[in-house]
Simulated assay, not measured.
Amino acid sequence: MCCSVGFARSLGLALLPLALCCVLANLLLLFPMGETTYVQENRLANYIWYFGGLGGGGLLMLIPAVVFITLGKCSCCWNESLMMCGSVLAAVIGLVGSGYCFVISGLTLMKGPYCFTSLGWKYPFADEGGRYVLEPKMWSQCLQPLHIVEWNVTLLCVLLGLAVLEFIICLLQLGNGLVNAICRPCCYKQEYSLNA
């Protein structure tokens, strides 16, 4: 049990910086190149307001991180099977949060930035299916905010990568928790029969 608890705690410690990076990346998306005028004038892509990194990959991810880190600290209150079941539930919450972050970031990347073009404010890459990401020559269509395509592509790719890492970590703990919740009672029976 102590090995699985130690493993869960290390996973929780790994989740904390990932969650903080998701929050930071999402906040940076709200302020292209550090400018506050675009958020005040509501000149940002719609999906950015869904807060995939802030909510899903960030704040929601703090729940499994805290549960994994504190696993076993209050053994007086919980038996080991309940403790592992709690970590499984927290891992499921983490999977939902990282999945939400991944989907929202992917949709935002596919649609492209909302920017000022020669035809006014619009989504110039909305019908491209995300191909614009691999064709930097097209990026000059966005005149304002300056370098918005590079800004969005970089931050959204970071969010996608962080969401995948968070998903893998929560999946590992889901497996760890399920194995321990199911197999631990069997181990107790074997130990009891050996001692008897």
Score class of each variant (00 low, 15 high):
residue 86 G to D: 03
residue 61 M to K: 02
residue 184 R to A: 10
residue 119 L to Q: 15
residue 4 S to W: 07
residue 51 F to G: 07
residue 109 L to G: 07
residue 55 G to M: 15
residue 9 R to Q: 12
residue 139 W to G: 00
residue 153 V to H: 04
residue 6 G to L: 10
residue 107 L to I: 13
residue 80 E to P: 00
residue 109 L to N: 06
residue 138 M to N: 04
residue 119 L to H: 15
residue 109 L to S: 06
residue 76 C to E: 10
residue 138 M to F: 01
residue 36 T to R: 13
residue 171 L to M: 10
residue 181 A to E: 04
residue 94 G to L: 04
residue 152 N to V: 00
residue 136 P to N: 08
residue 196 A to H: 12
residue 74 C to I: 09
residue 194 L to F: 07
residue 28 L to R: 10
residue 191 E to N: 10
residue 169 I to P: 01
residue 34 G to N: 06
residue 109 L to T: 08
residue 174 L to Q: 04
residue 6 G to Y: 05
residue 68 F to N: 07
residue 185 P to W: 02
residue 108 T to N: 14
residue 27 L to Y: 13
residue 84 M to H: 11
residue 41 E to C: 00
residue 92 V to L: 15
residue 103 V to I: 15
residue 54 L to R: 09
residue 142 C to S: 05
residue 54 L to W: 13
residue 118 S to K: 13
residue 14 A to K: 05
residue 41 E to A: 14
residue 183 C to L: 15
residue 143 L to M: 15
residue 194 L to Q: 08
residue 109 L to A: 09
residue 3 C to Q: 15
residue 138 M to I: 00
residue 44 L to S: 06
residue 83 M to D: 11
residue 97 G to F: 08
residue 195 N to P: 00
residue 2 C to D: 14
residue 153 V to Q: 03
residue 75 S to K: 12
residue 32 P to Q: 06
residue 26 N to C: 11
residue 21 C to D: 14
residue 56 G to P: 05
residue 194 L to G: 00
residue 114 Y to M: 11
residue 83 M to C: 02
residue 108 T to A: 15
residue 31 F to H: 15
residue 26 N to R: 07
residue 106 G to N: 14
residue 18 L to H: 06
residue 153 V to Y: 02
residue 152 N to Q: 15
residue 169 I to Q: 01
residue 45 A to S: 15
residue 35 E to V: 09
residue 182 I to P: 01
residue 135 E to P: 00
residue 82 L to I: 07
residue 118 S to L: 12
residue 34 G to W: 04
residue 175 G to Y: 03
residue 95 L to E: 10
residue 186 C to N: 09
residue 11 L to S: 12
residue 134 L to G: 06
residue 185 P to C: 03
residue 139 W to Q: 01
residue 129 G to V: 06
residue 39 V to A: 14
residue 28 L to M: 13
residue 7 F to R: 13
residue 131 R to H: 10
residue 35 E to Y: 10
residue 33 M to F: 02
residue 150 E to S: 14
residue 140 S to L: 01
residue 163 A to N: 10
residue 42 N to I: 14
residue 38 Y to E: 05
residue 124 P to V: 06
residue 118 S to T: 13
residue 144 Q to G: 01
residue 10 S to Q: 13
residue 190 Q to F: 12
residue 97 G to D: 10
residue 23 V to K: 02
residue 108 T to P: 00
residue 191 E to V: 09
residue 45 A to E: 14
residue 192 Y to Q: 12
residue 34 G to P: 05
residue 69 I to S: 02
residue 53 G to H: 11
